[in-house]
Amino acid sequence: MLDKFGIAKRIAKELKDGYYVNLGIGIPTLVANYVPEGIEVVLQSENGLLGIGPFPYTDEVDPDLINAGKQTVTTTKGSSFFDSAMSFGMIRCGRVDLTVLGAMEVADNGDIANWKIPGKMVKGMGGAMDLVAAAKNIIVAMQHVDKHGNSKLLQQCTLPITGLGCVKKVVTELGVFDVTPEGFKLLERAPGVTVDYIREKTQGRLVVTGEIPEMNF
C-alpha cells in the first residue's frame, strides 16, 4: 500500500519532457518533488504563473509572489506572469498537457466530485470546475476508501458533481487505474496489495485483464 508520497511519486512517472502541468492542492502538489531526472516540466499556477520555482529562502519571501494555494513561491528559469483570464484561457484551449487533482469521489465513467459536501460549509470550487471541464488529460490522486472504509471509486458519484466524464486516470494507495468505457481498468497494484483486495474496495466497475503487475518506481 502506498502513502501519499508514494502516490505522488507514481504520478510523477506520468510526466513527460516538455509538459506544462497544473498541480492541485494536497497530494498533487507533492508530485513536483519527484519529477524524473533528465526531463523538464513547467508548472502552471492558475493565479497567474507559469514556471513555479521552489519555496523561497526566508530572505526572498515576496508577498506579491504566491501559488494557487496562497503559499509563497519563487519563479524559475523561463517563468512568466499573466492575468487570471489568460490563465484559464491556456487551460481551456488545451495548452496545459496534464492536470493532477485530488477528489472526494470518482465514478467509473470519469465523473468527479471534489468541491462540496452537503451539510458542510461550502468553500467554493475555485478553479476546479474550469480545470475538469477543459483539461485534456486529468489524473486524480486520491485515497481509495474514506475513513469509514467506503469506496471512493464508484459507479456513480453521490456528492455534487464538479465535472462530467473528464478523469482519464486514477492513482490511489492501492493501484493505478485507467478510466475506460468499461470502467476502472486496473493497470498496476501497489506493493503488497492483491487484486482481490482492490476488487473488494472498488464499488465502481473494475476491469482486470490478465496478470496485473506490481508497480515499481
Partner: peptide, 14 residues
C-alpha cells in the same frame, strides 16, 4: 501591509 496567508520557505541547505 501586504499580508501573506501562508509563508512557506526552504532552508539554505536545501
Amino acid at each position: 501591509e501586504k499580508r501573506i496567508e501562508q509563508i512557506t520557505t526552504r532552508n539554505k541547505q536545501e
